[in-house]
Structure formats: C-alpha cells, structure tokens
Computed example of a mutant assay.
Amino acid sequence: MIRFNRAIRPFSVMSFDLDDTLYNNHPIIKAAVSAQQNYLNALPRYQEQGPQYWQKCRQLAALQQPELKDNVTQWRKHTLHLALSKLGFTEQEVALHASNAYNAFADARSNIVVSDDVLALLDNLAQHFTLIAITNGNVEIERFNLHNKFELVLQAGMHGKAKPHSTLFDKAAAHLKVTKSDILHIGDSLDTDVQGANNTGCQSVWLNDQNAKYDYKGLADVEITNIHALTHFIRS
C-alpha cells in the first residue's frame, strides 16, 4: 500500500532509518540486552541487586547527564560504569567488566543479516538516487551486510542530536550539498523519523508496519506498509 498525503517534489537523496525499517530490530535488541545481562549476572554482587537495578541506574545516568539521551552508546557505557561503581568494584574491575559487558551487547547488537530482497531493493534505488542512512541507534553498520550500501551514515550522538532534532538532517544536506527538500527520509517512527523530517524541511515516508503508538500527530508526505513500495519512485 502507498498513500500520498501531500504531493512529492522532485528529490535526489533517499535517507533511511535503519532499525525496524530495513530489518526487524526487536529480536536483535532482545538478544543484545540478554547478552549484556548474562555477563553482568555472572557477577554475584550485580545479580544480588535484582532485575530492576539496570533500569534504575540508567535513569540515574540520564538525570546526571541529560545529554546522554542523544547518544545511546555513551548512555549505555555510562550506565555500566555507574552500576558497577555503586557495587564496590575497584576502578580497574569497573573498567574491565563494563568493557566486557558492553562488548557482549555490541557483538549481539550487530548480529544482523538484512534480507536479500531488501539489499536488491537498495541496489535498485541506488541506480536512481543517492542513498544515505540517518539513525538514532548504535548499530555498527560496518559489521553486517549494509556496510557498503550508503554514501553517508549519520548516527545520533556521534554526529549530532537524535531525531527528531534537525542536526542529522542538516548535516546530511550540507555534506551532500543539496537542499533539505531534496532529501526523502524513510522510517518506521512517526515521533523521530517523520516528525524530524517534516520539521526540518525534508520530505517524509512513514513505513507503517509496527503497530506502535506515537505521540506525533502530523502526517508523513507518504505512507507505505511495505518497504518495497519505494520502487514507485524509480524513474522509468
């Protein structure tokens, strides 16, 4: 299904969100969180704190440094150090266990295989448009089979504030030397992808296949229910 809420102006760049847009991220995140927790729970002092300890420390980290919410990698790393420091580990032990726990998370986090049909779609689109990625996530794209599909990859935290803030869209336009209306951004989230693109002056496509609730009440320029509907934009 493809529905046009507004007329699409000519564009030269297709910008993709990654998680839950080009692959199902839910089982990947679940596995990554489990890998981290399995490492931490092998430490008796940590396990004794109970299942809510991580979330409490995560919330405390955000209170201490609100800017961490724009960088999920640093938020996780800071929370690991905070959680372990509160348990009386030495500085060296904190550094060791925090590093090992994060690496367990990161290894599972990037254990992604994008389907062949999506890769073929991107290859097809790349013959007509410049393809880039703009993500709030911390997936390491060089570690799986999207690593050579984009001319530019921008990640929240590393390159600027998280969507829906305009920073990553602004940087993309400046880097590619295009106007923001030349960018068509595709993503699964109304709150981050569509709101961010709309507010910044980019054009927006909402991949509506998550059955999720969102706060943003604005409309995407285009709504689709299957990523392959993007072939509609290929010029004959």
Rank of each mutant, 00 (worst) to 15 (best):
R6E: 12
R6C: 06
F16D: 01
D17F: 07
L22E: 04
N25V: 07
K30Q: 15
V33T: 11
A35N: 09
A35H: 05
A35R: 13
Q37V: 04
Y39L: 13
Q55D: 12
C57E: 15
C57T: 11
R58V: 01
R58F: 11
R58I: 05
Q59A: 11
A61P: 03
A62R: 14
Q65F: 06
P66D: 09
D70E: 13
N71R: 05
K77F: 11
H78A: 13
H78F: 13
A83L: 03
S85C: 07
S85W: 02
T90Q: 02
T90L: 01
E91Q: 14
A95T: 08
H97T: 02
H97S: 04
F105M: 03
D107A: 13
N111F: 05
V113N: 04
V114N: 01
D116H: 10
D117H: 12
V118N: 04
V118H: 02
V118Q: 02
A120C: 12
L121I: 01
L122F: 06
D123Q: 13
N124F: 12
N124G: 09
L125N: 13
L125E: 09
A126E: 07
Q127C: 12
F129S: 03
N136K: 11
G137Y: 07
V139Q: 15
R143M: 09
F144K: 00
N148R: 13
F150R: 07
E151D: 13
L152T: 12
V153D: 03
L154Q: 03
A156H: 08
M158P: 00
M158R: 14
G160Y: 05
A162V: 06
A162E: 06
P164V: 13
A172C: 15
L176R: 13
T179D: 14
I183Y: 06
I186H: 05
L190M: 15
T192D: 07
D193P: 04
Q195G: 00
Q195V: 06
G196I: 09
A197S: 03
N198E: 02
N198S: 09
N199I: 01
S204T: 04
S204Q: 10
S204W: 09
W206H: 15
W206E: 08
W206P: 00
D209K: 15
A212M: 11
A212V: 07
Y214G: 08
Y216F: 15
Y216W: 14
H228N: 14
A229V: 06
S236F: 06
S236N: 14
S236V: 10
